[in-house]
Simulated scan of single mutants.
Amino acid sequence: MPKIEQVQLAFPVLIEVAGTTGSGFYLNDDDGIYLVTAKHVLFKKSIETYTEPVTLTSLDGDEGIKTGLKVSFKLDCLKLVEEGNLRKHALADVAVCKIAALTKVDDGGRFHKFLLTNLPGVVSLKEEGVIRGLPRKQTARLDQVYVGDDILLFGYPTSLAGDAFDRSVPLLRSGIIAGKTNDGQIVIDCPVYYGNSGGLVAMPVVDGSLIDVGVASRMVYYVEKTYSPRFDGPVALRHENSGYALVEPMDRVFEVINQIRGATVLAKNA
């Protein structure tokens, strides 16, 4: 598997709200920085907007990879929905939040810096810091994803036991594209755990960059049956992690981004 440029570890985002955690990632799409995640991470039961503030934490795009320096924001989801900058997909497990307008600063490398203008409902928790988003051109649509391709899963599996690592630094898992479902999701041969939902799923390529294929949605379970000789049959069922996971493709992410852009146009013309 090709090595990746370490600066890309600043793309993943730890999401914390109401005592729960999830994962997401930043995406640059010309007009702004978008937080991409699973719908059930930012919406209670995938329906209701959280009234509690949402905290976003990522590695600083300049020094964080070496020093562990973090960048954090706090989101007011009610305000962001009201402004049309937080939307969820009607059917898929995808949510997108535009957190900032941006102006690119050429720093001489492939990963550019951006000056951010926070949108209403977004508050920086530190005065300084650089966030980096995965460029839109480094994404693949569903028909460009092939079974057998190598992938990396980026996320924050906060349910893992032990205190040997910083839980606000992303962990990676490797796997392959194992298949596609009848309704257009991607199946990966890579286990996900509590906290991984909404994480970046990307293919590493030979130049060190990542090609984003989608958003981690949920694990695929298998059912384990416990039998009792006394009752001559199953007495309990247990759902276990099969090691496979479902991923929403980027096609559905861009459908939501287009909704946000449409809402912005309508607001300007109102």
Rank of each mutant, 00 (worst) to 15 (best):
D107Y: 03
S58Q: 14
S58E: 07
G64Y: 01
E82Q: 15
V54M: 12
A95Q: 06
S124H: 06
L56H: 01
T57N: 10
T103N: 05
L78C: 09
D107W: 05
S58V: 10
T49F: 12
V122L: 08
G68M: 11
L116F: 05
F43Y: 15
K79S: 11
A92H: 04
A100W: 00
T51C: 07
G84P: 01
G121E: 02
K104N: 01
K88A: 09
L69C: 01
R87Q: 15
T55C: 02
K70D: 04
A38V: 10
K45C: 03
T67W: 13
L75P: 05
V81P: 02
I65P: 02
Y50E: 08
L115E: 14
K98P: 04
L59E: 02
S72K: 12
S72A: 12
T139C: 15
S46H: 06
K44M: 11
Y50Q: 04
V123C: 02
P135T: 00
L78D: 11
K104E: 07
V122G: 01
A92T: 03
D76T: 09
Q138M: 11
E63C: 04
S46C: 06
D106M: 10
N85H: 14
V96Q: 03
D62H: 07
G64L: 02
A38E: 07
V81N: 05
R110A: 09
T103Y: 00
F111D: 08
F114I: 02
V105G: 00
V94N: 07
L116N: 04
D143Y: 14
T57Q: 11
L91W: 11
R110V: 12
E52I: 05
Y50K: 08
P135C: 00
R141L: 15
H112C: 05
Q138W: 13
Q138S: 11
E128D: 12
L75S: 07
L56I: 05
D106G: 05
G129Q: 09
L59K: 03
Y50A: 06
G68F: 09
L119V: 07
T103V: 02
H89N: 12
T57F: 10
V123F: 10
L102H: 02
L115K: 13
V96Y: 02
S58A: 15
T51F: 13
I131E: 03
T67C: 06
T139L: 04
H112E: 11
L69F: 05
E63K: 15
E82C: 06
K88N: 04
G64H: 03
G121F: 01
A95E: 09
V54N: 04
A95V: 07
P135L: 00
R141A: 11
R141E: 11
S58I: 03
A100K: 01
T117K: 15
D107Q: 10
Y50S: 05
V94S: 08
H112W: 02
F111N: 05
A90E: 15
S46T: 12
L116K: 04
A101I: 07
K88P: 01
G133R: 03
R132E: 07
D93L: 14
